[in-house]
Design a protein around this nucleic acid. Structure first.
Length: 500
DNA sequence: TAATCAGCAAC
RNA sequence: CUUGUUGCUGAUUA
């Protein structure tokens, strides 16, 4: 108990009593003391380890505030920890519905957990000696089959980071380049894609496409902090808090790892910080007078000739690796003619925007799953889900400008869905009755009901020869992909007219 | 104009 | 036991 006093804090004086009847809290407290007492300690974690050299602190505290110490940041800190800001931060984290961090406190547990520790945590945050928990490391599979490491902060740390984000985002974002489109309010990937197309039409037919290798894990922390100090008027409590977050380390398979470089991929603050670091790249490209587009760690420079593109590619590789200290993904990065470029899952061909092949096959695959006859749910639900998916997907890929690819997919999907009904009706009698109900002639219905052909083959003729028409499917709640595409186009045009 | 929930996409 | 930012769509509540 004594050892846990430091982390649990002296504020909760009746800790023993109030914790007793809370089973979850109890488990937590014990798990923590366990790992500390050294009996099979999986990791060592010292919450109060001072991370700053003490002389820095003294000069900051004692000397009033010379150039080095920000007079802006104490105010920001107040804004960050104001109750309204913390509350919206909490709502946001809660709305995301994310998983628990390394302490195992889920969103449901959180209110209780926080009630016990609120005073202590807030005091520490204000004093500047709060020490964030390490992040929990897991891996998620990306679409290309590779794994991406993920650092999941504690629910509380997510809230604090979100609170910081809410205050810092408007400040930092205002100085970012207009050519940066990722992770920014009021910025769409679509605008980046359209920009590339516009450049292409102006004769910039060559692209230098550079992808940074495991960017989040490789960012030099010093550079992020330096950039932060630059914007926030020097050193101060906010910069230090963020520094602690960068240095919090991670836990994988029960053991603790320090983070010397990189930032946790999964904290609310990470996207903003990544833009902050890569803003240096934007500024460089602007200084060189290039046409370019950046979306997070993926950026494209557009040029008029192949020669120029190769020259720029080489010099940018040099710049990114030596000046920014980042690694380049050599497999993905290359000089390409724009018509071979894949960017944000779009392609640019004959002056038009197209869906990339991989995204299109993902789309078909998902539709295949949704229309799988072995998925045993009600037809209503199945239709609802496919409708929802098509609408959502088209909301993004409706930017594509090719119509002709949709009708065949519609046709294919309808055939698959007819197959689902066929499978659902199952027995000859039911098939017959249902077909009759849809207005099929007795002769046709009888023929179909008795057939022993496979589902897929039967489904081919169901639409034409029975009452299971396209119209009927529509009345059952199926939307057409091609129609949805038109709708999106139409909405975009009217929206454009309204702004103009 | 705010919330809540369901979902789609980019990275 | 899959985090995060941003953008978008739909439903609902005041």
């Amino acid at each position: 108990m004594a050892s846990s006093a430091a982390s649990d804090g002296g504020v909760i004086t009746d800790g023993g009593v109030s914790r007793r009847h809370i089973s979850r809290g109890d488990e937590l407290a014990e798990g923590r003391t366990d790992s500390r007492s050294g009996e099979g300690p999986k990791y060592v974690w010292q919450p109060d380890l001072p991370l700053e050299p003490t002389h820095k602190r003294r000069s900051a505290r004692g000397q009033g505030e010379p150039e080095q110490y920000s007079r802006l940041q104490p105010e920001l800190l107040e804004a960050i920890f104001s109750s309204t800001n913390l509350e919206t931060a909490y709502r946001r984290v809660k709305a995301n519905g994310g998983a628990a961090g390394v302490d195992g406190v889920s969103l449901e547990d959180f209110t209780l957990w926080y009630r016990l520790r609120r005073k202590d945590l807030l005091r520490r945050l204000h004093l500047g000696n709060y020490c964030p928990s390490p992040v929990r490391r897991t891996h998620i599979e990306k679409k290309n089959g590779k794994k991406r490491p993920l650092g999941i902060p504690t629910v509380f740390d997510r809230i604090v980071q979100q609170a910081i984000h809410q205050v810092l985002c408007p400040i930092l974002d205002s100085s970012f380049s207009p050519n940066s489109y990722g992770f920014r309010p009021d910025c769409r990937g679509h605008d980046a894609v359209r920009r590339i197309l516009a450049c292409n039409r102006e004769g910039f037919k060559w692209s230098v496409d550079i992808d940074l290798k495991s960017f989040f894990d490789k960012v030099p922390q010093a550079r992020a902090l330096e950039a932060l100090r630059e914007r926030l008027d020097g050193d101060g409590p906010v910069v230090r808090l963020i520094k602690r977050y960068l240095k919090a380390g991670y836990i994988e398979l029960g053991s603790y790892h320090a983070t010397v470089e990189g930032m946790p991929q999964g904290g609310p603050l990470s996207p903003l910080l990544s833009n902050l670091v890569l803003d240096a790249l934007d500024k460089e490209l602007e200084a060189r007078g290039h046409r370019f587009v950046r979306y997070a760690d993926d950026f494209v420079v557009l040029l008029k000739s192949e020669r120029a593109a190769h020259r720029v590619f080489a010099s940018l590789c040099e710049f990114v690796e030596n000046k920014l200290g980042l690694e380049i993904n050599r497999e993905k990065s290359a000089v390409r003619p724009v018509k071979e470029l894949n960017y944000l899952s779009f392609r640019f061909h004959a002056g038009k925007i197209k869906v990339s092949e991989s995204s299109l096959s993902d789309f078909k695959y998902k539709l295949k799953e949704l229309s799988n006859r072995n998925w045993s749910v009600s037809m209503d639900y199945r239709m609802y889900k496919t409708r929802q998916y098509i609408k959502g997907w088209m909301g993004y890929f409706g930017l594509s400008e090719i119509y002709t690819i949709w009708p065949p997919i519609d046709k294919w999907l309808r055939r698959r869905l007819r197959m689902c009904y066929w499978r659902m009706w199952k027995r000859a009698r039911r098939r017959y009755l249902n077909l009759r109900k849809l207005g099929t002639s007795a002769k046709n219905a009888g023929g179909f009901a008795r057939t022993s052909k496979g589902y897929w083959r039967v489904a081919l003729h169901l639409g034409r020869k029975t009452g299971m028409t396209d119209k009927w499917l529509a009345s059952e709640g199926l939307i057409e992909i091609k129609q949805e595409w038109w709708n999106v186009k139409f909405l975009r045009i009217t929206a454009l007219k309204q702004t103009a």
